[in-house]
Nucleic acid binder design. Structure first.
Lengths: 209, 209
DNA sequence: TAAAAATATGAACCGGGTTTGCTTTTGAAC
DNA sequence: GTTCAAAAGCAAACCCGGTTCATATTTTTA
């Protein structure tokens, strides 16, 4: 098993992604053409597009695939959706379990730096949560009316996205993984408290002057 | 005033948008090329792009520019952000004040049909709220800490987007403007109640089986 | 009516992505 | 080892959204 073919393919794919990330980091996402990437990675353009469906996917592959719907659907009996999600993000913030696919830290940080530096990529990353939202809404709609489910899903995914953005922004601006994780811990609790108790609690929604 | 130039420009712009919308509705956004649109509207491609910066903008121009941040910033003294926004959407739902730019109903409905029929356009419409979210977060951050402001802005814009989607989906699937407005009334109250009181209230966040 | 300013245009170009038709490489059977 | 089918790679041409450029036409205004 693990034939030569498979190994070479994986190797090629990694090389392309690595070359692309380096070039993007050096000169910005929009200033690098796929032709350059292909050339630098020593493959034909058409081959590059066999491994990566789009230019964006060279960076966004593997980003933000939390599967919120799955977490909620698979939650143990007696636990509410929000509890399950809070639990999950607690684990994410404290444990270094997060890079399941074993992308090393440095690469992850570069990846985030590239994403935040490019409006194209930032909004592309945003889109990835769209499908998640719909999937989560479907799961939630099994136990409540559709509008409530849709609103819950919208609020939850928006909050999670905000948490992610802050986390990675800390990383990009120089914080260590531990430091960023520690901050994320507090952020997670605040975010879920807000979701559970609403914006009115504690006078968060203050009248104007 | 109102010289010949201005009139002709406006007329040309309208013609292009109308032709484009008709073609998109007939054959789908992705299946129509800008060359076809230009040809059908009897202008050069380069002229078309002088009026509309992108193909998407042929449909999305004027969609979803609520200016949430402005509403919050301009709220009367003594009113909280959520109260101000709830008020605004109440007005939107009941009054026929909404098409300030006087796009007629039929056109609006076709526009929404085209948008919902195309993933490209749907996610494009999504992006438009991104800037809104940031602007709203900035306004809210004047009176609370940044994270809370960011989370509030995220939850609010997500909820508003959900409301809009449902409203237009009703319209597209045949409801009259009055019918859709009536439904929106109830939806608005639910959405803002959820925002104010959180998902825990009334046991909305139920444990699993 | 002539000069100045705004607009429109065709044609060539760029970059992301696909199609086509062909060559090379690999895995496996004999 | 030889053979052969499948997989992978490739160059070149193509499509489409969008831009640039140099030129022509129209509207304004003086």
């Amino acid at each position: 098993m693990a034939g030569l073919r498979e190994r070479k393919k994986e190797q090629t794919q990694r090389r392309i992604a690595a070359v692309a990330l380096r070039l993007f980091d050096e000169r910005g996402f929009d200033a690098v053409t796929v032709n350059e990437i292909a050339e630098a990675a020593e493959v034909a353009k058409v081959t590059l597009f066999k491994y990566f469906p789009t230019k964006e996917s060279l960076v966004l592959r593997g980003v933000g695939q939390e599967d919120l719907a799955g977490i909620v659907a698979a939650r143990p009996a007696g636990r509410s959706p929000l509890e399950a999600l809070r639990e999950y993000y607690r684990g994410f913030a404290t444990g270094p379990t997060e890079p399941a696919e074993a992308v090393d830290r440095d690469t992850l940080i570069i990846q985030m730096r590239v994403i935040f530096a490019s409006p194209t990529l930032s909004s592309g990353a945003n889109d990835l949560l769209h499908g998640q939202r719909e999937a989560l809404a479907r799961v939630l709609a099994e136990e409540r009316d559709e509008l409530t489910a849709a609103l819950m899903a919208a609020q939850i995914t928006a909050s999670v996205l905000t948490l992610q953005e802050r986390f990675f922004r800390h990383l990009v601006s120089g914080a260590s993984l531990e430091e960023a994780g520690r901050r994320l811990c507090g952020d997670v609790e605040l975010a879920f408290d807000l979701l559970e108790n609403g914006l009115l609690e504690n006078g968060l929604d203050q009248p104007g002057e």
